[in-house]
Amino acid sequence: MHRGTAWLLLFALAGLVLAVLGLAVGSVQVPLPEVWRALCGLPGGTNAVIVLQVRLPEVLTAMAAGAGLGAAGLMMQTVFHNPLAGPGVLGISSGASMGVALVMLARPLWPALPVAQDLLVMAAALAGALAVLLLITLADRRIGDSATLLILGLMVGYLASALVSVLQAASEAGALKGFVLWGMGSFAAVDARRLPWLWLPVAAGLVLAVSLAKPLNALLIGDENARSMGVDVRRVHRTVIWATGLLAGTITACCGPVAFLGLAVPHLARACMRSVDHRLLMPGTILLGAALALACDLVVRLPWSGGALPLNTVTSLLGAPVVLWILLKGRRWGRG
């Protein structure tokens, strides 16, 4: 069997095992046969409710977040020719955070809307992400140069963070606590009814990401070279920006700013598969991202962590050393 295909199967298998564990493990342990009965729709009492109503949405949320952030990170790293690029880099996560802050912290300023807070948060995050994206798309039309765009994204990010800080300073304690909790990240905040709100945009983003595999491969040898081979580089940039915004915006709204996965997962997939061919690497990154997010979620929910460990702590503890190791291990990105 082809080595790349073997890795894809391995990632998928790991994801499946971790998903089943995610359904079984938690403050209440559900035996695997009962997990199976619940999934088959057979009556099973409290355990079935826990599996279907609580854990299944959480597992599906984690999968969507890991897959989406990984795909977004890979697209960014290729388009910006920068191994340190991630969905957070273009200021998209910061834009989403600003939207969320406006809803959660400045609630007293809003007229009473007959809409649930969590839907409002999601809409605001998406709006924030898209506002930043619109700005970046406009700039991209003017500049069209990766390095400048990257710096622009960073500056937009700083600006958004500063505005969030201003809002934080002016807000009352209860709202602030909610916002800080959201900022720690969690896969548990999306319930079954809201799941399509997360999964539909993420699925669309993933389809876009996979469909870009061929032009992304051409971009590996430089924007100008890609153009000379017939790639419409600006169109690819635009598509990547929208796909990333869709993925990062939606996921940030639902799970908080869980940005580390987006940076680390593509590196891990590259190191495992020893390939930079996006036709392999993109599906690999998506599958590995889902599996890793499930693993992180499992650590958060392990009985001894008491559910008190924030998700972002786990993703950072897992992700940061991995990236360091990959960067230090050699010139894998290989400029010289």
């Binding site: 051409a218 590996l220 040898i221 430089g222 081979m229 990105w333």
Partner: peptide, 19 residues
């Protein structure tokens, strides 16, 4: 030089078939 050294030569040359 191309920005990424991770490509193997065969794959890089194969990118020329893009059009």
């Amino acid at each position: 030089r191309p920005a990424t050294g991770l490509l193997d030569v065969q794959t890089l040359v194969g990118l020329g078939r893009h059009p």
